[in-house]
């Protein structure tokens, strides 16, 4: 018992130290590297909080894909750091801000410590209705059955943000390929890694999605791992980034949300409510939706990291 408390306290101090370092360090690139470590440490915290589904998602999206996106941005923005540095607010303003932020932290801390006891929980209800969904993982049941509407809207948010990113393209590049052209170095370490990792990564991604019905996992971490493999292949130059006007790409992007919405509409006729699943068919329907979601999430995350189109040559 004491050992587990020591681990928890040590982990908390470590997260706090890394967070302070991210804010304090001068170099933006170093701060992003710190952020990746911060995300992985947070994933460990989520494991300690018995939320393994969240830990997988945090490690994959919060640390991995966000980290990759920010690293690429930091590398491209390196030359602009120096002028921004002398716009720091004065010492008085900094101290005032620190005091205000400490006050907010204190208020939150008081709120955390005065949470009601016994804690209100929906876990018994979630557990009681699990047999009706045919699932064994309560979190997946919340995401795709009890609160499926939230998940559907979140898919739409992902699509909207991709449209937002694409709309930042210069007019001449519209419909073209994102990012600069990659030069393939056949003997490079990145190419070797890209030949080694994706076969394993794709299997792991599919397993995590499949296991998500009954064990921790699901469409989000699975789709993100699949996206990571794709991003890696695009970075190494082994796979061309698709042009955003390509029809097959667009079909995959909207597949998850469209199928989800179609099943939701069908719910009106076969189960009397939007997004209601007919009795006995819940699990197969959820798995079909999740499979489409995995593909769409992977494609959307990959294209979000690739950024707006920048070159038009050869479609």
């Amino acid at each position: 018992m004491t050992i587990s408390i020591a681990i928890d306290v040590g982990l908390a101090l470590l997260v706090l130290a890394v967070a302070a370092w991210i804010i304090a360090v001068r170099d933006a690139f170093a701060a992003v590297v710190g952020f990746v470590a911060y995300g992985l440490l947070l994933a460990l915290v989520w494991v300690r909080l018995a939320a393994v589904d969240v830990a997988l998602t945090e490690a994959a999206i919060g640390s991995g894909v966000t980290g990759g996106l920010l690293l690429a941005a930091a590398a491209r923005l390196r030359s602009s750091e120096a002028p921004a540095a002398n716009e720091r607010p004065g010492a008085t303003l900094r101290v005032l801000t620190a005091l205000l932020c400490a006050g907010i932290s204190l208020g939150l801390a008081v709120a955390v410590l005065s949470l009601p006891d016994p804690a209100p929980t929906l876990a018994p209800m979630a557990a009681a209705n699990l047999p009706a969904t045919g699932l064994g993982n309560g979190v997946t049941a919340v995401l795709l059955a009890y609160r499926a509407f939230d998940t559907l809207l979140e898919k739409v948010v992902l699509l909207l943000s991709l449209i937002g990113v694409w709309s930042l393209a210069p007019d001449r590049a519209w419909g073209g390929r994102p990012g600069p052209r990659r030069v393939v170095r056949p003997d490079g370490a990145l190419v070797f890694l890209t030949q080694l990792l994706p076969p394993v990564g794709i299997v792991v991604a599919i397993y995590i999605f499949w296991a998500g019905a009954d064990e921790p996992g699901g469409a989000f971490p699975g789709g993100t791992i699949l996206a990571a493999m794709w991003i890696l292949s695009m970075l190494a130059g082994l796979v061309e980034v698709p042009a955003i006007s390509r029809r097959s790409l667009r079909v995959v992007l909207v597949l998850g949300a469209a199928l989800f919405f179609a099943v939701g509409l069908a719910g009106f006729f076969v189960a009397d409510a939007f997004l209601a699943y007919p009795m006995g068919y819940a699990k197969p329907l959820i798995l079909v939706i999740e499979a489409a979601l995995v593909l769409s999430i992977a494609a959307i995350l990959g294209m979000l990291v690739a950024g707006p189109p920048e070159r038009t040559e050869e479609r």
Binding site: L49, A50, A51, D53, V54, T57, E58, I61, G62, V65, T66, L115, A119, P120, T121, L122, A123, P124, A126, A127, A128, G138, V139, A141, V142, L143, Y146, R147, D150, T151, E154, V157, L158, L160, S161, L162, G218, F220, I297, L301, L304
Partner: peptide, 26 residues
């Protein structure tokens, strides 16, 4: 804190956090 019924935690906030992580990324 909401751990009950054999679950390690209340699954509803956990699912919200997963949704939140994806929206934060986008």
């Amino acid at each position: 804190r909401g751990a009950a019924a054999g679950m390690g935690g209340d699954p509803v906030p956990q699912a919200l956090v997963i949704t939140g992580l994806v929206v934060a990324f986008s």
